[in-house]
Design a protein around this nucleic acid. Sequence first.
RNA 1: UGGGCCGUAGCAUAAUGGCAAUGCACCCGGCUGUUAACCGGACGAUUGUUGGUUCGAGUCCAACCGGCCCAGCCA
Length: 431
Amino acid sequence: MTIRTSIKYLGEHTGKTVLLEGWVYNSRSSGKLGFLMLRDGTGIAQCVVSRADVGDELFSRFDELTQESSLTVIGEVRADGRAPGGYEIGVESFQLHQQAIDYPIAPKEHGTAFLMDHRHLWLRSRRQHAIVLIRHEIIKATRDFLDNNDFILVDTPIITPNAVEGTTTLFEIDYFGQPAYLTQSGQLYNEANAMAHKRVYCFGPTFRAEKSKTRRHLTEFWMVEPEMAYCDLDENMIWAEKLIEYVVGRVLENRAAQLDMLERDRAKLEAVTAPFPRISYTEAVDILHAAGQEFEWGGDFGGGDETVISEQYDRPVIVHRFPARIKAFYMKVDAEDARLALGMDVLAPEGYGEIVGGGQREENLDVLLERLAEEDLDPETYQWYLDLRRYGSTPHAGFGMGIERVVAWICGLPHVRETIPYPRMLQRMEP
RNA sequence: UGGGCCGUAGCAUAAUGGCAAUGCACCCGGCUGUUAACCGGACGAUUGUUGGUUCGAGUCCAACCGGCCCAGCCA
């Protein structure tokens, strides 16, 4: 009897005849023996076609198995030390579905531009396959952590009439004659949802029209944003820390093979355990000065500054209490120092920079109105948001975690363009 | 948006201002245990575009187009 299965389950079927459906990853042959590396999305298996076993007629068709042709293979599973993975298929028959002619990506090195142009095919390669699996694990672990801690997923809109961050980085669209924008953050809506459910999160794409060409920026990226009612800055930092610790642990537990495929140093990830060091913005500035960096108190950290700070530690570091001037209007001012806002950033180690940003929100209506005026924002467009301070306002806090930057860090990738299947960047919208 | 670097065969690279070369892929032939298989053969280029300097330009100059890296801004 033939068992229809997938490559990841081959070990359960030793000695049995199975049917596999997949694509040719690579093939090579000698006069009477053919080796086919079959890729089926769950793994890669070596299939051996022997002329003596299948006959001249079928063996002559081995040549049709060009790279990335699709086919079904039937054969016996056997344990064999010579096969990558430890198991191979002794092919009894195979049926070609479609022969791929001149597949563009050779098992050879290619330039970035060429690979990005063929992103839809590049995703089939081992390395990209591993990255997508780790991305999946990170997203699933994030949601499991939040779900298991009484957070409710409450979706926030993608089309919005107003901005959260600076207005220079918005994508504007025509909404039936009215200007509208693609969301930069679900945060304002999250605050409303937290007043209904206590602990909530949103998870979705966000859009920033920043004209930045760096290894850490996409114009479309995915962000998970938890928001908690009756939560202060200290508790907020604990949630962020616990989330990151859990996510890294899950990837180590379930995707070690993929990390090894990417040649990621797992010891660096094993060090990521709570508690993370916490330093104030002012202490961070001292670190920069001690390292000989030019930096004036009151400014925002650049990529180089973040690297210097994060290099002091073997795990993520939380920087808190920033100058209020460089933070958004909704951030609560520190009661102990009016120059400071109760914000926090989590900087990943190894120079990967900011992966989380958040803080405690201002819950006082009058203070919020003042801050809106200071930032030259029109209170009229924020009436529904201000209602949250009129009807049962509470201390609350939250943060956003950028999925692509977390994937880049955990995978040890040099650029975020490989962390998302179809990256959207300043100079690229296709495929 | 600034600064730097780069565009040569399907892909990756080489070529002092002087015959555009090599490897891989594709195609043909050989090989019964290959691991990005190996061995032999064949095919494949208006050197990103336009103009200029020169006896002569892939190479030098200018503009444009495209890309990479760095910076600013951010997750």
